[in-house]
Design a protein around this nucleic acid. Structure first.
Length: 809
RNA sequence: GGGCGCUUAGCUCAGUUGGUUAGAGCAUCUGCCUUACAAGCAGAGGGUCAAAGGUUCGAGUCCCUUAUCGCCCACCA
């Protein structure tokens, strides 16, 4: 017997244990077709917030759906503990910077810290009912994954898609590392636009340059004007004298200069922005690099050497003002590029970095993007846009400690790079030496290790490779190439999705997955994204599970459309709570009436039973369609709508038949029993995608024909009740009208109807005759008078027996 | 400035290829203790579908323009 009240806390932990013990979600290759999920490994940088719960739940529902459709589910879980996020977490916990702790000790602390957090992540996701096979979980920093990352690097290296080159790279002088274009975030800041007078050496003519970054004056290598700029084109070919710095640079022409921007005259520094780098390359300009790695002016620069960038900016403005060359200052708000991990403005640094070739294969990446089905489809446009606009090769080296080391050494003498052999992986070049004893280029026998580690994305972009255990030569590769689906939020299309496509193209010349499913964001309120930094205890996942249960939170997580942001709302949680409660109550009711039920072949369904069965079939069709498009929220809406109709209309009708076999007959009663038995089973299956716990509890009590409801399969019903559906709907509408009349008269729904006069068309009259007992019992009708009508129906008169009502009260 | 998306009841959201009076839940109001459920049931009120224009017999739905907000990108001279 089902309990009177459903105790979510007790039942959820009970079934969690049961699933684990019985390995319900274990992946074992067999005859069945595999549906594989490339789960996003959450970044281990502190806390799981409600946004994670939202998007992971949606993926997990797809896993459950496909499992019910008979697929063998490959659903691993991973943790992204690699790289800067982990380092910053440790630095925060320790209150010290990495270089103050020391490389070895720091790495140890990173492992320790990420392990600690991962355990709590796993507990939380389990509690949410995430049906991954924890046996196949992975970390992005572990000997196994380091090996795969290094293998991936070597494969690309051998194929010539990786290169090591001195080149300007984006540099964060807070994190002390180079970063990739994809790690940039734009921020609006207030700054000053300074108009500074320069002079030509030849004619002493004055001209003005506007800049927000006067501290870059010592780094000026050239001045540009547009060749079509009538006001300035005569300057081309002359030499510009830089005030205060006292250096001369050439004035050159380039079409990229916008005549109407600033003063129309531009200083080119190494490096202030992307255009500087382009010009530097295009015109082969000299390099004047004036910053230190930690964001100061280089000591070799007179006067300003040793100052921080902003101090230098203030000092040089003072000096320029003293020199009388500052013509104007304008307050200005503009966008700057910052490092997403720390929020500090980025600079450019020139040093040797490892790059993966992007620019030569954009067409291939676009082609593969088109082979993949994006859900929702418009997300594909974002991918295209990113690939079309990308301007850099992918810099994958980071001057940090905790990450995948490059399996590379350099000859101490000539700098020749030497890579590890594949069979020696994983290697740490800091603690080992290359196999070859002497440098192939110069014969020297001393090597120095590559100190850099790989970018986080260089590792997380190989999750499909980690899943297939790339390099082991097993048959998983056959099963998982390509994987069925990748899921993530839209913000990392440009990183995780893109880089995974890049790697998959270089390794296999193939798409990594057939489908990409993009979820939206969770907003705290209109226009306010919930983020880790704005920790809000009201939306703490563990607290929410305690208060509402995992099933109910999953209800909230399923609300809304794919790719669309949702606002965290307690109303939606309340609604879920009511739904779950209703499932429990109606199951109790059905159980009560199944005590003497034996399931057997039966086709003599009552009219109303045919109606609800047909209606269910219609619903399930669109339900399944939505799920095939990964629209879990829309699927749930459809199911929910049907379910309330089932409870409020069908059950209200059939209950009389179930309670009173003497009056209605045993066969009509059996018809009702068969209907509720059959439909509840199917409803529980459909709901199990969203509410894995409560449906399991009910299923085990009432049906129990498999080890778990989550191991059953959905088999669509095969009846043809179309006619009963539409006529039954009309009958229910008539019932509603009569109930409405009772409500309007403020009387109980049990109030008898003395006379009900209806005009019905022929079909409807026929339908009513077939369900006359149910109909009369539902409305407590004493006299029913039916007239003929050509089309449709009309409720002519409702006369209530109010005396009866008054007598009782 | 560019790409994509959102804008529908007081609030949170649905509205499949254009097709009668635009839907649900919450909130509000009115009733009903009805042998599963008062965490329930039956009703009621509440919307010029962001704005303007266009296509069409017919537009929340298609096209154009504008505005707001969100994500991403570019611009930083």
């Amino acid at each position: 017997m089902l309990d009177k009240k459903y105790d979510a806390k007790e039942k959820e932990s009970k079934w969690l244990e049961y699933w684990q013990e019985n390995k319900i979600y274990e992946f074992k290759p067999d005859q069945r077709e595999v549906f594989s999920i490339d789960t996003p490994p959450p970044t281990v940088n502190g806390k799981i917030h409600i946004g994670h719960i939202f998007s992971y739940s949606q993926t997990e529902m797809i896993a459950r759906y496909k499992r019910l459709r008979g697929y063998n589910i490959f659903y691993p879980f991973g943790f992204d503990d690699n790289g800067l996020p982990s380092e910053r977490l440790v630095e925060k916990e320790q209150g010290k910077k990495a270089h103050e702790i020391g490389r070895e000790e720091f790495s140890r602390l990173c492992y320790e810290t990420t392990d600690k957090y991962e355990e709590s992540f796993q507990t939380l996701f389990s509690k949410m009912g995430v049906s991954t096979d924890w046996q196949i979980h992975y970390k992005t920093v572990s000997p196994k994954t380091i090996k795969i990352s290094q293998l991936s690097f070597l494969d690309l290296y051998e194929k010539g898609h990786c290169y090591h080159k001195e080149s300007p790279a984006l540099w964060c002088n807070e994190c002390l590392t180079s970063i990739a274009q994809a790690e940039l975030e734009t921020k609006t800041i207030k700054t000053t636009f300074n108009y500074i007078n320069f002079k030509t050496v030849e004619t002493k003519e004055e001209f003005t340059i506007a800049t927000t970054r006067p501290e870059l004056l010592p780094a000026i290598v050239c001045v540009f004007v547009n060749p079509l700029d009538d006001a300035h084109k005569h300057l081309i070919g002359q030499t510009a004298h830089i005030p205060v710095i006292d250096v001369d640079v050439p004035i050159m022409a380039d079409e990229k200069v916008a005549i109407d921007k600033g003063t129309g005259v531009v200083m080119c520094c190494t490096f202030g922005d992307q255009t500087d780098i382009e010009w530097w390359k295009k015109y082969n300009l000299p390099l004047k690099y004036i910053f230190t790695d930690d964001g100061k002016i280089n000591d070799s620069i007179p006067v300003y050497g040793g100052l921080k960038i902003k101090e230098a900016r203030a000092k040089i403005m003072e000096d320029l003002t003293d020199a009388g060359v500052v013509v104007k200052k304008e307050e200005l708000e503009h966008e700057v590029q910052t490092h997403e991990r720390c929020g500090k403005e980025v600079e450019y640094a020139v040093m040797k970095q490892w790059f993966i070739d992007i620019m030569n294969h954009k067409e291939d990446f676009l082609r593969i993007g088109r082979e993949i089905k994006w859900h929702p489809s418009y997300m594909h446009a974002r991918y295209e846009e990113w690939v079309n606009n990308i301007a850099w090769d992918w810099c994958i080296s980071r001057q940090r400690y905790f990450g995948v080391p490059f399996p590379v050494w350099y000859c101490d003498k000539c700098g020749q790079e030497v890579v590890a052999s594949k069979e020696d992986l994983p290697v740490n070049p800091l603690t080992s030496q290359p196999k070859i004893k002497t440098c192939p280029a110069c014969g020297n026998d001393k090597f120095v290790p590559e100190l850099d580690v790989m970018d986080t994305w260089a590792t997380s972009s190989v999750t499909p490779l980690i899943n297939m255990r790339y390099g082991e030569g097993n048959n998983l590769e056959k099963i998982l190439r390509p994987m069925s689906i990748r899921t993530n939020a839209s913000e990392i299309i440009r990183t995780w999705d893109f880089y995974t496509i890049v790697k998959s193209f270089y390794h296999f010349n193939q798409r990594p997955w057939d489908n990409v499913m993009i979820s939206g964001f969770v907003m705290a309120d209109k226009g306010e994204k919930i983020s880790k930094s704005k920790g809000n205890s009201k939306v703490e996942p563990m607290a929410l599970i305690d208060e509402y249960s995992a099933d109910v939170i999953r209800y909230w997580a399923a609300s809304g459309r794919l790719g669309t942001d949702i606002i965290f709302s307690t109303e939606t949680l309340q609604r879920g709570k009511k739904l779950v409660n209703k499932i429990w109550n109606v199951s109790k009711f059905i159980e009560m009436h199944l005590e003497d039920y034996k399931d057997q072949e039966f086709n003599d369904f009552e009219y109303i039973d045919k109606w609800i069965i047909g209606l269910f079939m219609d619903m399930e069709k669109s339900f399944l369609n939505y799920l095939d498009e990964y629209e879990v929220g829309l699927a749930l809406n459809t199911l929910e709508k049907f379910f309330w109709n089932f409870c409020d209309n069908y059950i209200e009708i059939v209950k009389h038949r179930l309670y009173r076999p003497l009056e209605f007959g045993d066969i009509p009663r059996y018809s009702g029993q068969k209907t509720v038995y059959m439909l509840l089973y199917k409803l529980l299956q459909d709901f199990s995608i969203f509410f894995p716990f409560i449906t399991e509890e009910i299923y085990q009590e009432l049906y129990h024909d498999h080890k778990s409801i989550h191991l059953t399969t959905i088999n669509p019903l095969n009846y043809n009740f179309n006619k009963e559906v539409s006529l039954g709907n009309d009958l229910v509408n008539i019932i509603s009208e009569v109930r409405g009349e009772k409500s309007n008269k403020n009387v109980s729904l049990k109030t008898p109807v003395k006379n009900l006069d209806l005009s019905l068309n022929k079909e409807l009259k026929d339908a009513l005759n077939k369900s006359i007992k149910d109909f009369k019992a539902t409305l407590f009708i004493e006299n029913l008078n039916i007239k003929d009508l050509d089309e449709g129906y009309n409720v002519d008169k409702i006369e209530l027996n109010l005396e009866e009502n008054n007598k009782e009260s």
